[in-house]
Simulated assay, not measured.
Amino acid sequence: MNAPRLQTRLFGASFLVACSLALAGCASTPDVQTDHDPSANFTSFHTYYWAKEPETANPLAKQRLIDGIDARMRAEGLSLAPEGSADLAIIANVATQQQQSLDTFYSGGGYYGWGWGGMGTATTTVRTYTVGTLVLDMFDAKTKKAVWRGVASGTVPDSKEKLATAVNAGLDKMFADFPPGSAGK
Rank of each mutant, 00 (worst) to 15 (best):
K144C: 09
S182N: 03
L88V: 05
A71R: 07
T155Y: 05
S79R: 14
T8A: 04
N41R: 08
E53T: 04
A169N: 06
S44G: 13
Y129G: 09
R127F: 00
H36V: 11
A3K: 12
G25I: 01
T121R: 10
R64I: 05
E83Q: 04
A176V: 00
L134G: 06
A40W: 05
P38I: 07
G84A: 04
N2C: 05
S79W: 07
C26F: 04
R5G: 14
A51I: 07
R127Y: 06
G113V: 00
L78E: 13
C19D: 13
P180C: 11
V17R: 10
G117F: 14
W148V: 04
A169S: 13
G118L: 10
E53H: 01
G113T: 00
L163E: 06
P179C: 01
A75I: 07
G115W: 05
H36N: 12
A22T: 15
L136E: 01
K144R: 04
A40I: 04
V126L: 06
D37A: 04
G113E: 03
K142C: 14
L78G: 00
T155L: 08
E161V: 09
D35I: 02
I66F: 02
E55T: 07
D35N: 11
V17C: 13
I91S: 10
V126C: 08
D67F: 05
M1L: 09
P82N: 10
A141P: 12
L78S: 03
E55I: 13
A146V: 15
R5V: 08
A71H: 03
P180I: 00
V151T: 15
M73V: 10
Q99F: 01
V131P: 08
R9G: 09
V126F: 00
Q7A: 15
H36G: 07
A183V: 00
E83F: 04
T133M: 07
Y129H: 05
S28R: 14
L136D: 01
A89R: 05
T47P: 05
A146D: 15
M174C: 02
M174L: 06
L136I: 00
C19G: 07
L88K: 10
R72P: 02
G108V: 06
M174A: 02
T128G: 06
G181Q: 00
I69Y: 01
R64M: 11
N2L: 02
G118Y: 03
T165Q: 10
A92Y: 00
E83A: 12
E83N: 09
G110W: 15
M174G: 05
T47D: 07
Y112D: 13
Q99K: 12
A61N: 14
S20T: 15
K62L: 02
E76T: 05
A164N: 13
N168Y: 05
I66Y: 12
S44P: 11
D67S: 14
S159L: 09
G84W: 06
L16I: 03
A3T: 04
A166V: 13
D87E: 11
S182L: 03
Y48H: 02
M174S: 03
K52Q: 06
Y49I: 07
G25V: 09
G115Q: 08
S153P: 09
V151K: 01
R72T: 01
L80W: 02
P4T: 01
G150D: 06
D103Y: 02
T8S: 13
T123L: 13
V135C: 12
G12K: 01
T143N: 14
T104S: 02
